[in-house]
Structures are given as C-alpha cells and as structure tokens.
Design a protein around this nucleic acid. Structure first.
Lengths: 362, 362
DNA sequence: GAGAACAATGCATGCGTATTCATCACGTGC
DNA sequence: GCACGTGATGAATACGCATGCATTGTTCTC
C-alpha cells in the first residue's frame, strides 16, 4: 500500500456529515460559531474517517505553526537536556511542540537559523550556541521572536534570559575565600560563550578585590564536557613547579564532576580536604552522593518562564519586544566540596530541597 | 512592528528577478529544469529580499514535511537523551528535523500520536513509551511509517528495533554465575515495558537453567530512574531475615548507578567485594571512574541506523514495510562491578574503546 | 407584533508553493 | 531547409484549511 493513500480531508468529513467544509473547520476551531449538534455530527463523521485536521495546511492561513525551534549546542551537558525537557513539556501543555536543531558546541548557528526560518516556527530559543546579529535581525524582520537562553550577544538587540553569571562567579569566589583558600584554579569552557566569560570574570574580579594576585589564579581551558574537564584537571597538576591550588572552580557542574573524578581517581586527592571544588548550574547529577557538589543554582524554572514570557507566543500581533536582558540571580548551594566555614550559617542544598526551583521536571 | 510584516514570497522574488514564480520555485528545487543564469538571478533577488522558501507551504503540495516525530517517555535517563541527540544529528544531515513529543514515562502515548498526525510528519519514532495497536494502524492508514525504538508491542504489526534484551539478561546472569554468586536481586523498571520484562525474563531463565531457585532471586520494582533505583536498593536490605544477595542486576545503567550510590554511601557496601552489580545499556556515564559499570552494551548506532532504514524516509512511494522485529545482539562489557573470574579472557570495555559502537556522538 | 440583535451556516477566496501542461527557442541530423 | 528532440519558461491549478461576507432562522425587546 502506497503512502498517503487514504488521508481524508475536511471535505470528506463534510460530505459524510452532510455539512459544508467550513462547518468542519469550525468544529475543530475552539471559540468559533457552531451549534453543538453540528459539532457532534462532524466529530462523528471525523471519527469514522479517522480524520485529523492537517495543521500544516491550517498554518498556511493562520500563520501559526505551533512549533517552536530550539537550537541546542551541547546535549552532552545534562543541564541542557533538562532544559530541553522542561521546554518541551511546558510548550506541549500550550499545544505547541519543539523542533530540535542541533549545532556543534560553540559553533555559529547561522546556518541552522536559515533552516529554522524555512519552517515558519512561531519562535526560536537558542541555547549553548553562537549567533550573528545578522541572523537575529533576519528573525526580527519576519516577526519571529527569538530568545537567547543562558547567553547573550553583546551589541545585539536580541533578547536574552540568563542567570547573573558574573554575580555567580563572585559567590564562588567568596565561598573559597571564606574557606581560607589562597591559591586558585579555574577550568573554563567555550571561550567565545558569554556564559563562561562572565562566570570567570566575576570570579576573578572578586578574588582580586580581596587582593589575590592574578598569578595565583591558574586558568585551564577545556572542552565544555565531563571529559574535557577530566583532562583539564590533570593538566593543572602537571606543572610540578606551579604552586598547588587549594580551590578549583569549574565553569559548570558537569565539568566539575569530570574534574572531581580526575582528582580523586587519578591523582588520589581528597575533596575538599586536599582541594575544594565548585561548579555552576546545580544539575541534579551534581547532588548525587559521589559528588555532593557545592555550586551556584541556576533558577531554571524561572528562566524558562521568563523565556516563554518574552517569546509571548500567545499574542503574535503584539510585535517583538526590544532586546531584553535581565540577568536573574543564582544562589550558592553549600554541599560538601567546599568546607563550610565555622560559624557560618549558610543555607545548604538539603534545607531548601522542598521549595527549590530545581531542574527536575514539574 | 507587528509580526509577519515583511515576509516575502516567491512572487516577490519573481517580480524582482523578472521571472515567473515557477522559476523561483525551480531555482530552489534541486534537479529541476532551470538555466544556471536564471537560477543566479533568482538567488540574487532572494538575497536582496531575505527570502527563504516556506517549507510549510511546499509540504502542502509535496506531502513531505521533512519532519520526523520522536515520542520520548523518559528524558531523565541519559540513554534516551543520547538517542535523541543521535537521531537529531543524523536526520539533520538528511535535511530533516526532529519534532519532540514528551510523554510521561510508561504512559500511553495514544494522545501524543493524535498530535503527531496533525503535523503530517514523515515518520514517527517511539521510544520509552507505550502505544496501542489502534494508533499504529492509524499511522499505517495514512502512510506514516512508525518504528518502535528499544521496545515492541506484542501482537502489533508495528516495526521495532531493539537490542536482544532477553539474551542480554542471560549474559548478565552468566557473568554473575561465573563470578560465583548464589543469591540474586533485581531492580526492575516499568513493568508494562517490554524492555524491562525481557531483560528480567532472560536473566531469570538463565539462572534457573543453572538450578537457581526462584526464591533466591529477589525482585524489587522501582521507578525507572536513578532515584527510583536508589530507593529500591535500600529496600532490598530492609528485610533483615532475607538472606543477602551477592549480585544485583539493575535493569539499566542509570538505575545501576543509583543503586550503587545507595549501596556505597548509605549502606557502606563495597562493590564488587560485598555485592556485585550489573546494568544494561552501556551509557557513557556508567563508564566514569566512580562506577566502572559492568553492563551489556546496546549497539546504539546500529540500532539508530536500522531505525532510519526501516523508516525509509527517502522513498515515500514504497509503502510501509510489514512489521519488522529483528533484535540486535548486545555484548557484555566487563568493567569493575563484577569480579572477572580467574582464567577468563573476556573482552573489557577498555580494550575495545577504539572500535566501540558507543553512545557518544560521531 | 415589528424590528433588531444574534447565532449558525454556506460560499468563495486566499495562504505560498510545486507541478503539469503548453509553448517557445535552439540546435541536430539528414 | 525541414522535422525533431531538448531544455527552459510561464500560466494555471491543486494542496487542505481558515475566514470574511452574505444569508437564513431564531430570540429578544419594547
């Protein structure tokens, strides 16, 4: 049997139900003017014919596809797979679906955007990827709202939703200082990404405010992945003459996990006794028993809601907002990879588990 | 500026280029009859107008959307997020995109299918979710190919691609037996899913063949997640009078990881000295230093290729294949959660890393 | 009881593209 | 020089549905 054989249309249903095609259309359009009796007749006929409205055809006239593009550059980081899941769920509740566009981590997503435009999506969410201003304006021109999730493009008029990464970096710095560290190391991620840059900047700034010299802050770049950080961590200790740091800031949790495993299982270091470690994101994986990672929690649900709010999918006539970029504050979550300074009464991850805005769904 | 303001159409481009609309269409359709000179004129005009073909409109006539639906029931399991990533990448290389449909783990995806049908997708991949035969036949009726990934529906004519789960369960059983275990425990997943059932069945069968009594095999059900297995593992040892098992089979790797963490960090057990553990899937996370999980590797790339091959998206006129269900064999990967029996020369995960068909992309 | 307001319905048209068909220009072979 | 094949092009139409408009029947108001 060849494909596309018996796909019935609204005309078929109309004929069977003894009404016009318009009536069928209205029967499936909430809020349109149709008698309940007629609607039932239509439903009955539709059921017999296994009719399902063709939303592709309808979007030709309504100019709405109920599809949102999600451009994602790093599915290997669980943070982003949680983000993807959350977006998909929330959008689905609104009767929309997510169309995935994968790009190489850190790569330009200009080409992806071209494909996105072809699909006439109602909105674009871009995360863990770069984008040229030319592309954002192409979206703007055709009235497609675009929001950068967890990054921003300097000088662009594209809206972005992100955690206050610089402030988060400062929180980590303070935690290390409070715990008495004097010598620091960082494992950074994509050097082109604003996220990594900002976290590093805040971290270094805060340390320098307290008189730490730049030469006491070792920086190692790595691929933004578990494996990248694993190797980078080993690199820090390769130089024998370099004074050993007491505190390691990994630019995100998955990298912190990679670093911790390298330190423990390859170098035999104890954490936090020999070396304290902090991450960033507060992914559920970092809360697990082997890691108990001290980190900065990204308020992911809040960020997602803000993203959807800026996207403003329900009101397409309203026009595109001018570039919005209001960083949302993250919070330091104390666990076990930095010794809690005596006398301090910081909140811990456990205490607030109940009211946490975590990455877990629902 | 209101949305949808200046979206230019093929007519606009045609006017600017001084050709007909047909010419514009042909310029963007590979293999159609058009002079190179004309094509360039069209491209030039298109560039000036920021024109991008509207694939929604074109799919109205071509009856192809270049969209593949992926119904996914458990994004929390990294196995499935790797699967998602791999599908997205491979399909994207073919000029197709993935439209995500999230369903609750283990839930019926009948309602999701209804939404899928609205989008006129070119194919459906269903994974980690249940589906009624009524829905598969609805897809068949309208010529939409559907493949069940990593599961099958008994009595259905829907094609499925999966690892030979029963055989995999047997491999685990053999490994435990070879290591000298006499007393066994299992942490199972979704009781309705064929995947979990088959793995358990193979495992138990093989043990019984060797004379193990059913009463020496403890079974604990859990949610199919890290946390579910974490709690389930604790449950196994709550009964003080029950003889303690020496070997624990978790139905998949993420659950094995949860179980291991519970055993180590809550119960203070050493693995494999006090208790050996095996998983199933061979996700990259299970290879990490803290786990070094002995498991059965699902040949994920092979499975993905098989899925796309059955989907046969390039040849829509060919009709739907009748139900195909050829399980692909998995291979036991020895790592450190089962002591390798003396004298045995099994292959280990490490040795074959180079040629592994792993879950990592590309 | 007359007129108005309103709900329900059908007709006709438009959405942006692919494709069929007819036409035309051009070159080839005899 | 003529018939013919070939490649390029445009006009017209179809794809499946939503919606503006006109029409009809019904209820409400004073």
């Amino acid at each position: 049997m060849a494909r596309h054989s018996n796909r019935s249309t609204s005309f078929d249903v109309a004929a069977l139900a003894g009404v016009s095609q318009s009536a069928v259309s209205r029967a499936f359009t909430p809020g349109s003017s149709i008698a309940e009796e007629t609607r039932q007749k239509v439903y009955e006929a539709a059921r017999k014919l296994n009719y399902v409205p063709n939303s592709i055809a309808s979007s030709l006239t309504t100019k709405r596809t109920n599809i949102v593009a999600l451009i994602i550059g790093n599915m290997a980081n669980p943070f982003y797979s949680h983000v993807l899941h959350a977006f998909s769920q929330k959008l689905q509740e609104q009767g929309r679906q997510v169309l995935i566009f994968t790009v190489d981590p850190g790569a330009e997503s200009d080409e992806a955007i071209l494909h996105v435009l072809k699909y006439q999506v109602d909105g674009v969410i871009l995360t863990a990827a770069q984008l040229s201003t030319r592309m954002t304006s192409m979206c703007h021109d055709r009235g497609i709202p675009i929001v950068l999730f967890n990054r921003y493009i300097p000088g662009s008029d594209a809206s972005g939703v992100r955690c206050d990464n610089a402030a988060g970096g400062r929180l980590i710095a303070e935690a290390f200082l409070a715990a008495g560290a004097k010598n620091f190391a960082m494992i950074t991620g994509d050097p082109k990404g604003s996220t990594s840059q900002d976290r590093v900047r805040g971290f270094v700034e805060r340390l320098q405010e307290e008189g730490v010299r730049r030469s006491d802050i070792t920086e190692v770049g790595g691929q933004s992945s578990y494996e990248g950080a694993f190797n980078a961590a080993l690199g820090i200790f390769r130089d024998k003459d370099r004074s050993r740091p007491e505190a390691l800031f990994a630019i995100n949790d998955i990298m912190a996990m990679g670093a911790i495993d390298a330190l423990r299982y390859r170098l035999g270091l104890r954490i936090p006794e020999d070396l304290m470690v902090a991450g960033f994101d507060d992914i559920p994986e970092g809360r697990r028993a082997p890691y108990q990672l001290t980190t900065v929690r990204q308020p992911i649900n809040q960020m997602i809601d803000a993203t959807l709010s800026i996207l403003n999918l329900d009101d397409p006539s309203s026009g595109i907002e001018p570039g919005i970029d209001q960083p949302i504050s993250g919070r330091l979550i104390w666990r076990n990879t930095i010794p809690v300074p005596a006398g301090h009464r910081w909140e811990t991850g456990k205490e607030e588990a109940a009211r946490a805005d975590t990455g877990s769904s629902k």
